[in-house]
Amino acid sequence: MKILVCISHVPDTTAKIAFVDNNKSYNKEGQQFIIGPNEELALTRAIDIKEAKGGNITALTVGSAEVEPTLRKALAMGADDAIRVNMDPKDAFNVSKQIAEVAKANQYDVILTGREAIDYNGGQVGEMIAEWLIYPSVSGVNDMDLEPGKAILKREIDGGYEKIECDFPLIITGQKGIAAEPKIPAMRGIMMARKKPLIVVEPVQSDNATEVLEHSLPASKASCKMVSADDMNELVRLLHEEAKVI
């Protein structure tokens, strides 16, 4: 089983967000970068399956040299090798095109991405790769098993779930539930990661379909109106007469 896991290099979920360069760019100064939490769970599940049934896992990030520690972490968790496409990722159309080109050259059985990256929340890259490659795809997967030649998946739908089977090759976008908790690299894994191959490839010619012009922060809430715990009639009155939500 040849598995590719696409990893976004994103600011930590607790990061305070600030912008520089006339609000055009995100301020990376002093930020901790992590493996996107959705694909971290997908990678965890892939490693468990590989350890039980065999196979090879490649971790891939489209990014400049600064993303390498994130890829090393994926290797420390248990991926076998890594690929970095040497390009500043600014747009899902372009990023997905780059990943599809790598996939064409290497013929993976399963390509995993997260449900969405937590920086630009596009939710686009996985399904776009599927369309470039004309592969089937199953998105928002909360439960995954891989058997030789086929994937058995569950995804949540409105008010329930559906179980889907699909032959290789395919794209899976994963989210919470696909693994319970992300794998924490052990010391041995961290040592081994240094020796695992991390290949850098140059991007193919493609264009950015979109471009961020400017960022802004949401207006902060007016102060919170406190109501006494003994006066719930007052709270109900406020919700009805002032906020008009009940």
Partner: peptide
């Protein structure tokens, strides 16, 4: 305009296509 950084910010995005 869209939401970004999981609701922590907004981004004004231009489409080039």
């Amino acid at each position: 305009s869209k939401k970004a950084f999981s609701g922590k910010a907004f981004a004004r995005v231009k489409i080039n296509k």
